[in-house]
């Protein structure tokens, strides 16, 4: 599993909340530029995995290595700086800030300069501001949000808010992007566009993507490999075809193994 092209290597991560073992001995590796799906029934612990990877929760055991460095115990902002960005299942935009400012805020991480410089309006600080604005506008253009940059983020339609979250995550300059149910609440047309968008993001930004999604059509179509989580444990891993025909996966989704192998 540990080839030189592995960018994210998660081993033996566990987390309990009181008596509830939310995630047990979770291992996963992502190869550079890969696109992996993480699926599982409701309550399987998918979002908890994201929270463990990004430092919102601290794992009880295990290691999370990104490009070789162990991230366990770092604060979320340090993990973002190390190159991991995420979106949220329940959208967490900066509602009262403009669309442009949401993305510009995420550019802050890679900016340099001092507060004094910003207050005095130094040449360097002004240059940084313009570069951040330019970069944010580029991202908004790619995500079809350019004409809404002055609107407050909370006033955007649902689908636009989801896209803005992805744009904002990309603005932090990540190596690995974690998408938590990006298609939730989208209509079929928007879902089709989302597929194309995910592919484009992967090519243009050269990011490695880990995707949580309930829409099986989208997951099977877009992901190269899929890991299936149930009761906090990985029960299967493989290509979409392999996962679909795995009896344990079918059992996790449907309760019991039916006669025909097939659609989960």
């Amino acid at each position: 599993m540990s080839g030189s092209d592995v960018i994210l290597d998660v081993r033996g991560v566990s987390k309990s909340f009181g008596g509830l073992k939310a995630v047990q001995d979770f291992s996963l590796s992502l190869s550079q530029g890969g696109l992996k799906g993480l699926i599982g029934p409701n309550g399987a612990g998918k979002t908890t995995v994201f929270n463990l990877l990004t430092g919102v929760y601290r794992p009880d055991a295990g290691t999370v290595r990104l490009g070789g460095a162990n991230l366990v115990g770092l604060r979320p902002c340090a993990i973002a700086e190390a190159g991991m960005a995420r979106t949220f299942q329940n959208i967490r935009l900066f509602g009262q800030l403009s669309v442009l400012d949401n993305v510009r805020l995420a550019c802050h991480l890679r900016s340099s300069g001092t507060m004094t410089g910003a207050v005095l309006g130094s040449v360097f600080a002004r240059g940084q501001e313009r570069a951040m604005t330019e970069r944010a506008r580029e991202l908004l253009r790619l995500f079809d949000l350019a004409d809404r940059e002055d609107e407050e983020a909370r006033n955007l339609p649902y689908g636009d808010q989801r896209r803005l979250e992805i744009a904002r995550a990309l603005a932090t300059g990540p190596a690995v992007l974690l998408l938590d149910e990006p298609a939730a609440g989208m209509n079929p047309q928007e879902k089709v566009e989302l597929r194309q968008l995910i592919r484009r993001v992967r090519q243009e930004f050269k990011v490695t993507i880990l995707l949580i999604e309930h829409d099986m059509g989208l997951v099977m179509d877009v992901c190269e490999r899929i890991a299936v989580l149930d009761y906090g444990q990985v029960i299967a891993e493989g290509t979409p075809a392999e996962v679909q025909s795995n009896p344990r996966v079918v059992e996790a989704y449907l309760g019991e193994a039916p006669a025909e192998a097939g659609h989960a």
Partner: peptide, 11 residues
């Protein structure tokens, strides 16, 4: 606006 998101964006 949102402390968790802010932290996740590297602030």
């Amino acid at each position: 606006e949102d402390e968790i998101a802010s932290e996740a964006m590297g602030v």
